[in-house]
Structure formats: structure tokens, C-alpha cells
């Protein structure tokens, strides 16, 4: 019936199993390099990367870059995702909104958001705003599409019940449509978060003097391959941490879907 200890044990077990495949990958990589597969100057072993990781941490360079990148990504994510949810739900509630917004999504979603970077630089300058803006635009589309799909595909019976029981359009929106769409909204947010990381880092390649993306690109230009890998690994770690937090939030916000 409710969450027994059996179920929570299974959840904990599953979380531990999450670490299995990344660790196995690292071990295989280390073995391959030490066995002489590949040129260690270009493909460093995990232990080389770990050493450089430590040095960059101690120097304060990596923590600072991490903070800068996280700020850009999370700010952009929120600025893109919140209006995405709101507008997606509005599309499902009002036909007029859908008719106006749908063709714009069809036209703008497929454009590589990085192709807009020069535009953002022109409009917003070389500061933080341009990077945050490009992340926000990238996060916006998967969220709006999912929020709309979630709200538009709510089982008809829930709408019928709400209408028969006298729900105003405000209650219909806040108590029925929003919650009914929530599982798909979260799916959209998860995709958007990953896209935010991709776009945020890539934007730092070309238009920043700080951040993990900048670390990766500048290390590459200086042929400091181990530092480059430190950047790549850091992004991966941040991705794992944020998506773990994200799943935890999802469990709290959607308790009726809890396993």
C-alpha cells in the first residue's frame, strides 16, 4: 500500500547502482591507457586528469569557473523554463494562444541556438547577459512543448469532473490542468536542464573569458589536454549532481507518482 521499507530499500539500491557504469568506464579507460593504447600526451589517463583536477581545485581556478558556469546555466535555465511552462499551459487552455505560438515554435525550435550567439552579443554585449540569454532560449523550447503536450493530453474525465463540479477557469488551471501536466512538465525540464549545460558550455567556448567552457577551450588551444579533460569531467559531474537533485525535487513535487 504505502511506501514500505522494501520499496525505499529498492530506491536506495537503485541509487547506488547508478554509480556502477561510470566507475566501470573510468577503470577500463585507465587500464587501456596504462596498457599503452593511445598516446598519453593526447589522451590522458583518469589518474592524470585526477591529479590536474586537484591542482586546479587548490589554485582556486576550477571552483571559480564552476561557480561562474553554474550561475550562467541555472539563471538561463530558470529564465527560459518558467515562461516556457506558463506559455505551454496557456497554449493548451486557449486556442488563440496556440494558433499564435505554435508556428513560432515550429520555426524557431530547430534553429541551433548557438547560431544566435552573435545576435545576442550584438544586442547584449560581451557580459553575462548574452550567455544567460542563449541558455534561456535553449531551455525555453523543450519546456513549452512538453508543458503544452502535458496539459493538452490530460484525460478528458478530469476535465469533465472539474466542469461538473463547478470549477472556475482559475481553478481549472491551477488545480487540474497544471497538476495533470506536471509529469510531462518535469520531463521537459529535465531535457531543458541538459540542453542548458550543452549550450552554456558551448557559449563559453566562443564568447567568454571564464567558466568551464572557457577552461576547456583555452586548454585545448594551449594543448593542455589533461586540463581540457578536467573541464569535460567537471561538466559531467555537475550534470550528475544537478539531475540527482532534480529527481529528488520531482519525487517531492509529484508524490502521487512515487514508486
Amino acid at each position: 500500500m504505502s511506501m514500505g521499507s522494501e520499496a525505499s530499500k529498492q530506491v536506495r539500491q537503485e541509487r547506488l547502482l547508478y554509480l556502477l557504469s561510470p566507475i566501470a568506464l573510468l577503470v577500463l579507460w585507465e587500464i587501456a591507457i596504462r596498457a599503452g593504447l593511445g598516446d598519453r600526451r593526447f589522451v590522458p589517463a583518469p589518474s592524470d586528469i585526477a591529479e590536474r583536477f586537484w591542482l586546479l581545485c587548490v589554485s582556486g581556478e576550477l571552483p571559480w569557473d564552476t561557480v561562474v558556469t553554474l550561475w550562467r546555466i541555472l539563471a538561463g535555465f530558470l529564465i527560459g523554463a518558467i515562461p516556457g511552462v506558463a506559455l505551454g499551459l496557456c497554449m493548451a487552455m486557449w486556442r488563440g494562444v496556440r494558433i499564435i505560438v505554435d508556428p513560432l515554435i515550429a520555426a524557431l525550435f530547430p534553429i541551433p541556438k548557438l547560431a544566435l550567439m552573435p545576435l545576442f552579443l550584438l544586442a547584449l554585449g560581451f557580459g553575462e547577459a548574452s550567455k544567460i540569454a542563449v541558455v534561456a532560449v535553449g531551455a525555453f523550447f523543450p519546456v513549452i512543448v512538453n508543458a503544452y503536450a502535458g496539459a493538452a493530453n490530460i484525460e478528458k474525465i478530469y476535465i469533465d469532473v472539474a466542469r461538473n463540479y463547478g470549477a472556475s477557469s482559475r481553478i481549472m488551471f491551477t488545480r487540474v490542468v497544471f497538476f495533470g501536466a506536471l509529469p510531462l512538465i518535469f520531463a521537459g525540464l529535465r531535457v531543458a536542464l541538459a540542453i542548458s549545460f550543452i549550450i552554456g558550455t558551448a557559449a563559453e567556448f566562443i564568447a567568454a573569458k571564464s567558466g568551464i567552457g572557457y577552461l576547456i577551450w583555452s586548454s585545448w588551444e594551449l594543448l593542455q589536454v589533461d586540463a581540457m579533460f578536467v573541464g569535460i569531467v567537471t561538466i559531467g559531474l555537475l550534470g550528475v549532481i544537478t539531475s540527482t537533485i532534480f529527481l529528488e525535487v520531482e519525487r517531492k513535487v509529484i508524490p502521487w507518482k512515487a514508486p
Binding site: I157, D160, V161, A162, Y165, V176, F179
Partner: peptide, 27 residues
């Protein structure tokens, strides 16, 4: 009037208590 549907139509995101109070809350 109030209708009882074939499949209960209780909102999955509301507790039993909130579901039962729904028609009062809306009014």
C-alpha cells in the same frame, strides 16, 4: 447535480480528503 463517473475520476494528484472536498472548494 453531481455526477459519479464510470471510472472514479478522482484526481490522482489530490489526496482522498482533497478529492472529496473538491466540489465544495470550487463553490
Amino acid at each position: 447535480n453531481a455526477m459519479v463517473f464510470q471510472e472514479s475520476g478522482l484526481f490522482p494528484w489530490m489526496s482522498v480528503e482533497e478529492n472529496i472536498g473538491f466540489g465544495l472548494m470550487t463553490r
